[in-house]
């Protein structure tokens, strides 16, 4: 089943990345399979890739993606951990807070985008409204004005959506730390920060690693927020690789170059999987002993 809905399309996409696919004029051979005719298009070798790697727009998007992913992973880890540390404390209504954690995470990214437009818009944004009321600004700020600010808005909005999940994982990890370890630390006279540094964080290493990998992959793949918030602009300054590939494939139906761009992303994800796999399985082996 999975091979049917994943492997075959994956191979077909790979093939397209080596072909001249222009949907406006469908030419070239077709693959006859179970009575279906699947167009194969004209094989052009590595041409799509060669052009891609020579295109400054691709490299601009590449480095922008790197920044986006880096900033996103960092923010997610820091905010995710921060929220976990706060929620770990003893207080009234703790289960309720855990439920609230799920709200940003369970919204579709289209709604997440809409909702942040309501907060950040230069004409009616509530955040602008708040800052204005507080007298901190005398005219509304345009958060999507410069490309760099827009890119950071995307990072933070996506983080708002994703960090709660990291928090959930970290909270689960914290709960599995035996109380005795803390007791012992306290007897030794360790303060809050020392306990955090010498007990909590080392115990969470595995989960933190997981959070890093998952958010790296998610960062690479983010598409829908760009669609709703910036469409890759202003200029091309929020164009990441996934957006560039998506646009190339579906704005002018150049599936060849489009799939080539997306395949470079796929290779990156494959590498990440290898790393993740190694670590996870080493951990599994250790547990089995």
């Amino acid at each position: 089943m999975i091979s049917l809905v994943v492997v075959f399309p994956l191979v077909y996409s790979l093939w397209m990345s080596f072909a001249d696919v222009n949907l406006l004029r469908t030419t070239g051979p077709a693959l006859e399979l179970f009575g279906l005719s699947i167009p194969l298009f004209r094989y052009v070798g590595a041409q799509n890739y060669v052009r891609l790697l020579a295109d400054p727009l691709y490299w601009d998007s590449f480095w922008r993606t790197a920044y986006f992913v880096g900033a996103f992973v960092l923010e997610t880890a820091v905010v995710g951990l921060g929220m976990a540390l706060v929620l770990q404390e003893r207080f009234l209504g703790r289960p309720l807070m855990r439920s609230l954690l799920l709200i940003p995470w369970s919204l579709s990214r289209i709604v997440v985008g809409l909702l942040w437009i309501g907060l950040l818009d230069v004409e009616f944004g509530a955040l602008n409204g708040l800052l204005y009321r507080a007298g901190l600004i005398d005219s509304y700020i345009s958060f999507l004005k410069s490309g760099f600010s827009a890119l950071n808005v995307l990072v933070s909005v996506y983080m708002w959506n994703q960090a709660p999940f990291a928090t959930l994982l970290l909270l689960a990890g914290m709960q599995s730390i035996p109380t005795e370890v803390y007791m012992a630390a306290e007897v030794d006279g360790a303060g809050y920060w020392q306990r955090l540094r010498y007990v909590t964080l080392p115990a969470l290493r595995g989960i933190l690693f997981l959070v890093l990998v998952v958010s790296t992959v998610n960062g690479f793949l983010m598409l829908d927020l760009i669609y709703i918030l910036t469409m890759g602009g202003p200029g091309n300054e929020t164009t990441t690789i996934s957006w560039l590939g998506f646009q190339t494939a579906f704005q002018f139906f150049k599936f060849g170059p489009g799939t080539a761009i997306l395949y470079t992303l796929t290779v990156l994800c494959l590498l990440l999987t290898v790393v993740y796999h190694k670590v996870v399985f080493r951990k599994l082996d250790a547990e089995q002993i």
């Binding site: 994943v6 399309p9 077909y12 996409s13 696919v21 690479f220 579906f250 489009g258 997306l262 992303l265």
Partner: peptide, 9 residues
């Protein structure tokens, strides 16, 4: 896997 790579296919 980036799902978007499968969409053209």
């Amino acid at each position: 896997l980036p799902t978007v790579v499968l969409i053209p296919a």
